[in-house]
Amino acid sequence: MAPADPILRLNEVRFRWSGRASFAVSVPEFSVAAGETVLLLGESGSGKSTLLSLICGTILANSGQISVSGTDLSTLPNGKRDTFRAEHIGMIFQQFNLLPFGSVLDNILLPLRFAPSRRARSLDPQQEARALCTALGLPIEVVSAKASNLSVGQQQRVAVARALIGRPPIVIADEPTSALDADSQADFLNLLFDQVKSHGTTLLMVSHDQRLAEQFDRVVHMQDIAHIERQAA
């Protein structure tokens, strides 16, 4: 089922890692509508990371189209693609999201450094950063703290604030809850959903954990959209 207004669309995408252990991923069709929240379920080795790298434009597909907000990534030159990622995608990792030596504020404002329009969208980035921290249940004094002094749970929330600042249309989260315990996971998801819903942000989360499924608009299994080819070296 293809959404009427896809913000993210993959069509006949094929990608092969060069190197000894040949590993290829092909995605015939996958799209996400604007404002939709999608959980992409898959075991490790199912090509999730490769798929995210393709969507973010840090690797280029060998063939096919990947369009984000209507722009075909393969048409952008390398430098533009990096800026495009900064402008359109907020990224949350599994863990070690933050630059440990920077302050929380520096970490939150970092993507704006590479995305002029995203910064322009935010009237007062520092104020927005503080507001996001408050909304995500972080104590206000945390803002000026060094990132490495925060607990893992706090670091993940800072990562959410960083992904959301300047309101990028898409937030991509790569197993953001796997480093958290069950209670923190629920809290984290609730806060994340509050934010993306109130801003109408598209959320694509990758996980292997089926229990997260209930809050999402749609759950997609990796094996349903992607085909993996492996050749032993």
């Binding site: 840090t58 990096d82 990622r85 990224m91 990792f93 999201n97 630059l99 970092l110 590479f114």
Partner: peptide, 12 residues
């Protein structure tokens, strides 16, 4: 990797 994900170019 964090810098790259935030939109930094390899040149940066």
């Amino acid at each position: 990797a964090i810098f790259r994900a935030m939109g930094a170019r390899p040149a940066t």
